[in-house]
Design a protein around this nucleic acid. Structure first.
Lengths: 247, 247
DNA sequence: TTTCCTTCTTGATCGTGGTCATGGCCCCAT
DNA sequence: ATGGGGCCATGACCACGATCAAGAAGGAAA
């Protein structure tokens, strides 16, 4: 009894329930009724915040859970054979991490916090069990995976058809849009990742990222100071990002 | 009654039941018991074969079904804004087409047959309904999507880190492996796609594809004649495909 | 503070692969 | 058989972005 009370008090203090979470309109349980959300809530495991640089999980370790980002941000990095790392994704609050591990029951990449980050752990077998009786949850799970597929295709287009300038422009407009949807300013934000991460993600050398950032600055598209970004001309940036091909 | 008989006779003649399908060990219902497979079978819609160049569905049309390839092959092409097309995938028998349309309820690309091709249409709402009571089917659906996510990540790595030679080598080894899994020769096969398709898919100009194919030939890695391919040194090709970076 | 190390910027040079241009080939229709 | 058109191969040239190199700025710990 004492335990239960302590448990409840702690969870309220940490605002760890889905119903009070500010991300609930974007996150997995978005379509659930109150009762269902309570059930969903009950399978979530809270975790101590990850410090910058800490790994949420490592490549090739057994898959057991997916994770919803609650605050902070992460990057997913895959190492293959003798080759160097490939950064395949950045994750922001409300996004689901680990879905690509279901198939082989191992995580295909290491996921690392870019800053202090908290996540909700969702054991996959229990999630699937709930999904059996909650069509809305099932639908939301399909949609999350489907959306990630679409985003991947967009990334392939970027990598195979866009110039370096267009890649950077796409990167900024995409980030801007993601911040907007989460209620933050779409014009002013702080990058949690290093230039090297951006380059790796976009298929560019760090030097190229630096150079183009400089050029964007002189063109009055953005104002960058370290990791602080101000988008000055979003329409122009969007145009640049969307016009494809070499010229 | 007459209708039922006719229906049953037709389906037997066309070998259109999952239980008699040679792909059943690779396809969606792979984990199902006999009874479940019959239920699954009942929601499948058979389709007249697509002729070369015909579209299975077009970009931005409403999503309603996913499709399992029964024979032949297809390509998925996305057109965006003013830009040119981007070929995002080739589909071979047993593979599932259309999963990236769930999220927005519209197909994000046009899918076109590369040769005479037959598919099984699986209405998604009925599939989901079945999945509710068949955990194995649900699992297989997750796995299909998860696998596609992993393949996409591999493609991103190819596009952002590999040289033209390594891309072509990867393309051949991947095709070879896919044929092998389907019971065909991994060494000798016919490409159903044009050079231009390969180039578009791999992020290379057609001319580059031609040139490198020529080089592979003189290096004794493959023998290519038109669309007929003979892989002569698979180990070397695999090594080339896997060693990443510029050198 | 000072130090040390990581991160970022800027410059110079070079190479891969894109672009443009031409010609051959294969397949199909008439 | 004879064009015609898509598909493919090869050559010449050039540009984008990688690589190499050096130095400046930022940030954490003593």
């Amino acid at each position: 009894m004492a335990d239960t009370l302590t448990g409840r008090r702690r969870s309220v203090l940490q605002e760890t329930r889905c119903q009070t979470c500010s991300l609930s309109s974007l996150c997995l349980p978005l379509a659930l009724e109150v009762d269902d959300m309570d059930q969903f809530d009950a399978i979530i495991r809270r975790r101590a915040p990850l410090k910058k640089g800490e790994a949420l999980f490592r490549q090739d370790t057994p898959f057991s859970s997916v994770f919803a980002v609650r605050s902070g941000s992460l990057k997913q990095v895959t190492t293959e054979g003798s080759g160097e790392d490939q950064l395949t994704n950045f994750y922001l609050p409300s996004e689901l991490v680990g879905l690509d591990g279901i198939d082989e029951q191992r995580y295909p990449g290491t996921v690392v916090a870019l800053e202090t980050t908290t996540v909700c752990e969702i054991p996959f077998d229990r999630l699937d069990h709930l999904a059996e009786s909650m069509p809305e949850l099932r639908g939301q799970l399909y949609r999350s995976m489907s959306k990630e597929l679409r985003d991947d295709r967009r990334m392939m287009r970027l990598l195979s058809r866009k110039t370096a300038d267009q890649r950077l422009a796409s990167f900024f407009t995409s980030l801007s849009e993601r911040f907007r949807r989460r209620g933050y300013s779409p014009y002013s934000f702080r990058l949690s990742m290093a230039r090297a991460d951006i380059g790796n993600y976009l298929g560019l050398a760090v030097e190229t990222v630096s150079r183009i950032l400089g050029r964007f600055q002189t063109q009055g598209l953005v104002a960058v100071s370290g990791r602080e970004v101000n988008i000055l001309d979003l329409p122009a940036l969007t145009r640049l990002a969307e016009e494809e091909g070499a010229h």
